[in-house]
Design a protein around this nucleic acid. Structure first.
Lengths: 185, 185
DNA sequence: CGCATATCTAAACAATCGTTTAGATTTAAT
DNA sequence: ATTAAATCTAAACGATTGTTTAGATATGCG
């Protein structure tokens, strides 16, 4: 056996993920990734195939990070209020230096077109469906099925909107938005 | 006086605007613009300076198109219902081949970073402020000032979210979203 | 008409994109 | 210690980016 890698793939992917999150897919160049990940282009290609591969792994990494919030949401027993907490938790989660980066998934969905890579598109919709499913499960604890499905549909769109809006509007506007979303649901 | 231009600047900008709307700023290349606008790169640069110039004019063109909906909204006398109609009108406006392109302004806000061109950033926030102002004026017809401001804040965030979400979710989910937004306001 | 000047085409510009390759360096096993 | 194989650096790849330039073409005015 010859020499071993002197970098940890999980560590460098987390750095890549943060770069994609902040700048988007297109804007993030291999040059920037090289610098941020701290390894050479050759090593990046050896570990992840290509830029798309780095991005797909970054999405996995992002999901893993968000799982903390999702788990908390799944464990919640007070229905709508649990989801509302998730909305606020997300805002905190997405903030860096008091400036929101939005959601990596939502940002990507907003950026890509129909001709984008199928694996990426699959990853995005699978994530959205998963979150919606969690909403449904939480809501079923206090509602009957049809209402839960309808409310979940509403909330997943609202969550998507919040992710986008968080990159543009200020905290008071966003809080006002969340409060109104849940006011008379 | 020598030969005259054999293209109309307003006409070619409308074509450019549609390209930016569909594909975003970065993805739209000068090559694509050349083809879509039907004129040579030289002519584009002669008329609009650079890519950024084409984009700024495209935003003006977009605002002009949207003015039809804004004017209708301004003229409405039934408050919240007028705004709700505007939400639905926007969905129709943004659709092409039964597929929503979202809002050019919102799409751009989602795409660009902090280091983007200042003129573009100004154009985006000025647009958002204008729409919010119209919301306030419509709401003041049936509410007192503080409520109108607060509701307008809520609705402008909701509108931004709708624009983003319209590129991802289906008609029934979007309608459900709009109905819930206005349900108990 | 003929001159002047703006518009046109088309080629070239430097810079950067994502990706690949060649060669030096390091290390585990023999 | 030698060898084999994988990782590293660094340079180069062709393609495409936004932008500029040179030269041909067309047209309004004296």
């Amino acid at each position: 056996m010859p020499r071993t890698k002197n970098y940890n793939e999980n560590e460098v992917i987390e750095k890549a993920m943060n770069l994609f999150w902040k700048n988007g897919y297109e804007t993030t160049s291999m040059q920037m990734l090289e610098k941020e990940m701290g390894i050479n282009k050759f090593s990046i290609y050896a570990s992840f195939g290509n830029k798309n591969g780095v991005f797909l792994e970054s999405i996995k990494c992002y999901k893993l990070k968000l799982n903390t919030l999702i788990s908390k949401l799944e464990a919640s027993t007070n229905g709508l209020n649990g989801i509302k907490t998730y909305f606020y938790d997300f805002l905190t989660f997405s903030k860096e230096n008091n400036c929101s980066k939005g959601c990596l998934i939502t940002n990507t969905a907003n950026e890509i077109g129909d001709d984008a890579d199928q694996q990426i598109k699959n990853a995005l919709s699978s994530f959205t469906n998963t979150v919606r499913e969690v909403f449904v499960n939480v809501l079923k604890k206090e509602n009957h099925n049809t209402v839960a499905e309808q409310q979940a549909d509403y909330l997943i769109v609202a969550m998507f909107g919040l992710s986008s809006a968080s990159r543009v509007f200020n905290a008071s506007q966003l809080n006002n938005y969340i409060e109104n979303i849940f006011k008379n649901l």
